[in-house]
């Protein structure tokens, strides 16, 4: 869980950095997208590294989900008889309690997101357009409901990260200084959340067009 989660966190950081290039203009953003496909060429074939990274991501996501299912099943096995009274949480953290279902929701969001931005199936501009155009078209003011959906999902991802980051450190035995690391995890999650939110919001509100 922790290891696969860590891989995904590194991806998210890179992904966010790439997204933010949109503020540098269409050329820069499209150039970055193209570079992703060419990096390592000619040592590696066209799209070589990207495919490798994508494969890695798929593996990480699969591992992450597999671990989650194993943990959930272990939990169910460990408590065959449930409490009759509603169990009241005493620990703080909405984020912590929503890890499991939050994760499922995020999974569906990722599928939509891929259909929208990667494959263009759910995007008004379609697959043929440049990444920049797809992005701008995807979040145009008229499609505000898509933006709302993204915002909710990204916040969900943020919450997932807030617990997940710290939890990973804990599982890997690194979280000895509890409050400091917890604050750090919260900070990084907030940073990623904001980083991912500014792009669609900027487009919807017409800052980037």
């Amino acid at each position: 869980m922790a290891v696969s989660g860590a891989v995904l966190v590194f991806f998210l950081v890179a992904h966010m950095a790439g997204n933010l290039k949109i503020f540098a203009g269409a050329e820069s953003f499209n150039g970055y997208a193209a570079w992703l496909r060419e990096v390592g060429y000619p040592l590696l074939p066209h799209r070589g590294l990207l495919t490798l990274l994508e494969a890695g991501l798929v593996v990480a996501i699969a591992a992450h989900m597999y671990s989650a299912i194993v943990l959930a099943r272990r939990a169910a096995h460990a408590r065959p008889v449930k409490y009759a009274a509603k169990v009241r949480s005493r620990a703080d953290g909405y984020a912590t309690r929503t890890m499991r279902w939050g994760g499922v929701i995020i999974f569906f969001f990722v599928i939509y997101h891929l259909l929208d931005m990667t494959f263009g199936v759910a995007n008004p501009e379609g697959h043929a357009a440049t990444p920049f155009d797809r992005m701008v078209a995807g979040f145009e003011p008229a499609r505000w409901y898509i933006t709302v959906f993204y915002v909710i999902s990204v916040v969900m991802v943020g919450l997932h990260l807030r617990h997940g980051l710290w939890s990973a450190l804990q599982t890997l035995g690194l979280a000895r200084r509890h409050p400091v690391l917890k604050a750090g995890a919260t900070g990084l999650s907030a940073l990623l959340t904001i980083g991912f939110l500014v792009v669609p919001l900027a487009i919807t509100f017409g800052v980037v067009r």
């Binding site: 943990l71 939990a75 949480s89 005493r90 620990a91 912590t96 710290w166 804990q170």
Partner: peptide, 11 residues
């Protein structure tokens, strides 16, 4: 079961 660091225990 496995630990998912929910913190309910310490609470």
């Amino acid at each position: 079961g496995g630990c998912t660091n929910t913190g309910e225990c310490t609470a």
